[in-house]
Design a binder for these strands. Structure first.
Lengths: 401, 401
DNA sequence: ATGAAAGCGCTAACAA
DNA sequence: TTGTTAGCGCTTTCAT
């Protein structure tokens, strides 16, 4: 016996069921899909047999006939990213509510050249529509997608495109974060930029710069350091900023990971957090509440974004109408313990609701993971009105279960 | 103009190419797949045209013919889980090396009843094989899968099954963690169990109990609390343990999330970490290094596990032979700052390499995210020898980029 | 209410 | 080397 034959049950098809039920294949199809008219008794019988046999439809065949598969696809390039994972989780819930299925396609590494191969699979087959999350995809490929006629919605994409986009505020919230630092009396505020793929870093930097200008402060290019959204790059950028002449008293990193790196750098320089240097991040990934000191950062309403993205996609799949090309949700500033009054200054103001709070009581609050959120300026959607009133001032951060 | 017709390019099929090239469909198929014999010149031409037209094969059609799709699927039930995400990332790399594609199917919520619907899609179509990661899947469904003849490999599954399993050590590492606490002088050590789905919590509890017995300590059921792997449940379980009579001086949680909750609970009880109470977790999720105090925990070699799982799956897909039914990798204890000598005791020993380290210097070490790892007992695989020599004592934790 | 036939895009098997 | 035929599982169309 050289070949140990595996006992595979031949797949159950409509034919199998039809034979068992003594009806035609077509009747079975109709019975199972609730389409056309089938005698109640027949449908009952067919369904029972299908259940008994453990029938499950062959999606490929279904799709080949051009009908809907009820599967929507997500294309991501970095499953390690906490933000992306939160979005995926939220999308997952939204999709489930619609009784549809979700398939995630990980195109990590396909930075620019080869995504078409993988895309092809999703495209041609399987899914009715595609959600692109923080794609590094090139414009060329975006256009290819569009032409295929497969419904596509971009999530958190900020570069110019004609494709529909659902996203969270960057610029306004970044400005709010910067103003928060200004109110604490900081005058030299460093910025650590991320990579440019999705355009988000640029938006955040824009908010940072406009807040400075709004306060009558010149933007100093020497205070702007380049990073790549990774923790290490945040460490290095912050180290450079802090050891340079006329170092900043506060650092605004374009994402939380880099902010973590910046915190490490502050300590490595022998400085105290937040007394000597304040640090602000962006994203409010779960770890942001758990680092020490807990990170003041900006949170996008990822659940709302995800739900809207799915809704937009569905509208395009069904052709129901009412598409929006741009949907934006305001982000909100989350105050925690990584920011404090600028050293050697009384501070020209205090954080809302936190005036006079000493570092000690701040830390106590941190241990309970409590934090307050402050509304960022509400971004008005380009072609649609802001779908939710997110970001009410003073709203409590929901505790993570 | 009521209906804004979308301009969809009709999909490029073999037929399109065949017409353009003036050959038959079959020749095109052969040319593109390098199968059969095709004149070099013809193949060249066909390929050029295919490229020009941006052809990408219809996977569904391909699969319907029963040929390989070069896609492997992952079935998960919780994309929010940090552990699962790390596994997925590692699997992703492994799959990419094989020039195959990866599709993730999120079956969250399908705890027991309805996974067949979603499973069906993956099964019937799309993928050549399936990796089940920490599935909550019922035995019935497992068996169904097996019978379909679709190659399946379970990752980190601990309940009894005939299906192939690749997993990381639980029991031995949990015993090592418990012995670590014992060496620090702790005698009353609480255990917070997780949910029972994958059998992992039971394994960890088993290690905990056997270590206690090995030290001649009776297992006290009152020291064992039930959780569900969520942070909140860890908080509640730890609160209960700490406020009970004869409270433990150390708590071993079956995963990091619950350990975080336990740390919160310790503080909420007005106790100091780690002077009054030591806490140990399991998993070493990224956040474990960033909480305060940094968490002593157990790390599974997820990269090795993932690679082995993919390899096992591929072996089954190709029928190349050399299958292993059980592959296990030893896990290792990661010492950080959440564990210290038992209060009011000299301690019957000290953690390897950390004797005499005061809390102060411990915290300093934490800020650099430095940690040491200690080998857990090596678990010998059931039907195969341990594939890697993971867990050398004293090995440095690789710094996260 | 039910059935028969055709065909989606592709490839295995045979034919030329 | 190339082409023809058939059919994968399903649904749409047109009959009955």
């Amino acid at each position: 016996m050289k070949m140990q034959e595996r006992m595979k049950t031949p797949p159950v098809t409509l034919i199998t069921i039809a034979e068992q039920a003594g009806v035609s294949v077509m009747t079975v199809s109709r019975a199972l899909n609730d389409e056309g008219s089938v005698a109640a008794k027949t449908r009952e019988k067919v369904r029972r047999i299908a259940a008994e046999l453990g029938y499950s439809p062959n999606l490929s065949a279904k799709m080949m006939k051009g009908s809907r598969t009820n599967v929507i696809g997500i294309l991501v390039n970095d499953l390690q990213s906490a933000v992306i994972n939160e979005i995926i989780g939220a999308v997952s819930s939204a999709v489930r509510k619609l009784e549809m299925d979700l398939v995630i396609y990980n195109s990590i590494g396909d930075s620019d050249n080869a995504p078409s191969r993988g895309l092809g699979s999703m495209l041609q087959g399987l899914c009715d529509g595609l959600l692109l999350i923080l794609p590094r995809i090139s414009d060329t490929h975006l256009r290819q997608l569009e032409q295929r006629g497969l419904p596509v919605v971009l999530v958190n994409y900020w570069r110019p495109t004609d494709l529909p986009v659902v996203r969270g505020g960057n610029s306004d919230a970044a400005a709010a974060a910067t103003r928060h630092l200004l109110q604490l009396g900081h005058r030299r505020i460093g910025f650590i930029a991320g990579s440019a793929f999705t355009g988000q870093s640029q938006e955040r930097q824009h908010g940072y710069e406009s807040a400075l200008r709004g306060a009558g402060i010149e933007v100093d290019p020497k205070l702007i350091a380049a990073g790549d959204f990774g923790r290490r790059s945040g460490y290095e950028a912050a180290s450079a900023l802090l050891t340079a002449e006329d170092a900043p008293t506060a650092i605004f990193a374009a994402n939380d990971e880099m902010a973590f790196g910046a915190i490490d750098a502050v300590r490595a320089c022998g400085l105290q957090m937040p007394q000597d240097v304040s640090v602000v991040g962006f994203d409010d990934i779960p770890a942001a509440a758990h680092v020490h000191p807990a990170l003041t950062t900006v949170r996008q309403p990822l659940a709302a974004i995800s739900e809207a993205a799915v809704r937009e996609l569905l509208v395009r799949i069904t052709g129901a109408g009412g598409e929006r090309q741009r949907v934006e949700f305001p982000s909100e500033l989350v105050l925690r313990d990584s920011t404090a009054k600028a050293p050697g200054r009384a501070g020209s103001g205090a954080a809302p609701g936190r005036a006079g709070v000493t570092p000690v009581s701040r830390r106590a609050a941190a241990s309970k993971t409590a934090s307050r959120t402050v509304a960022a300026t509400v971004t008005t959607a380009t072609t649609a009105k802001p779908p939710v009133a997110a970001g009410a001032a003073g709203k409590r951060t929901p505790k993570k279960a």
